[in-house]
Design a protein around this nucleic acid. Structure first.
Lengths: 128, 128
DNA sequence: GCTATTATGGATATGTAAAGTCTTTTATTG
DNA sequence: CAATAAAAGACTTTACATATCCATAATAGC
């Protein structure tokens, strides 16, 4: 079980935008070079963030990506969910038992993790 | 990111052994039927638990698996680590930055999760 | 010691999802 | 219109989980 590289790219991109961009859009070219990924692949990842309203994109000359207005509220969990999806980390439908005690423990642990990640914002990492 | 089915099988097997077995070994045949898995596959999973000292195995007639003496101390985390390995959930070596702030957040969140899972024991689920 | 029973180990599929590429289309600026 | 840049679709590659099959090793009971 591991977080995907895509999540890593997304987190680093968000942090970079938060540190660098006032208003000027940053192209995927630049973002991709920094992280040593192909631009098209990173583009696919960032499109997910656009669809979740975390960043804005602009086509055409001088286009690129910028943070959305509410960027200071965006948590690690938000970004992770945008990339990895929101389904539970643990599937336990072996016996179709809705009251499976193992499931209960695992889901409660997952909730603890999510609460932690919900409280950590990208904006907390941008201090001068 | 998801926990593997193998982890699920291991957890359910441990719980079953804790509930049922006093001393009598349970064969992989029975355990596999219960969970609708092939015996050989489950066997490979259980062998990992044997190597970690969580259960004992006995070959030959009337053989099978039994819990080890210290079974009441075995946590969810122990079982998960035995099956999934102990490596971190998050790899962030993009820039080889040992002080990556994103990595710090992710590892600290993972630690929270592990602490939760460390405190949950299989034996806690066996109450009568 | 022989045989039946049961776990272990190795080699080999199979399935699925992540990771990445290539090409085309769409949108925007100048 | 031409240049730039994101979005979208189809596709390939890689990696790993999930098995399956067969041979081997260990043990109990006779």
């Amino acid at each position: 079980m591991k977080y995907s590289k895509a999540t890593n790219y997304a987190l680093h991109t968000m942090l970079f935008l938060a540190k660098e961009t006032p208003d000027k859009p940053v192209g995927v070219q630049q973002l991709a070079e920094m992280q040593h990924v192909s631009p098209t692949y990173l583009s696919k990842i960032l499109t997910k963030l656009v669809k979740e309203g975390m960043i804005n994109s602009a086509s055409g000359a001088n286009g690129g990506y910028t943070l959305s207005q509410n960027w200071e509220d965006i948590s690690f969990l938000d970004i992770i969910h945008a990339i990895e999806g929101k389904s539970s980390l643990f599937d336990c439908c072996l016996y179709n038992d809705p009251k499976c005690v193992i499931k209960e423990v695992m889901l409660s642990a997952e909730e603890t993790l999510e609460n932690e990640l919900k409280n950590r914002k990208i904006s907390d990492l941008v201090k001068k």
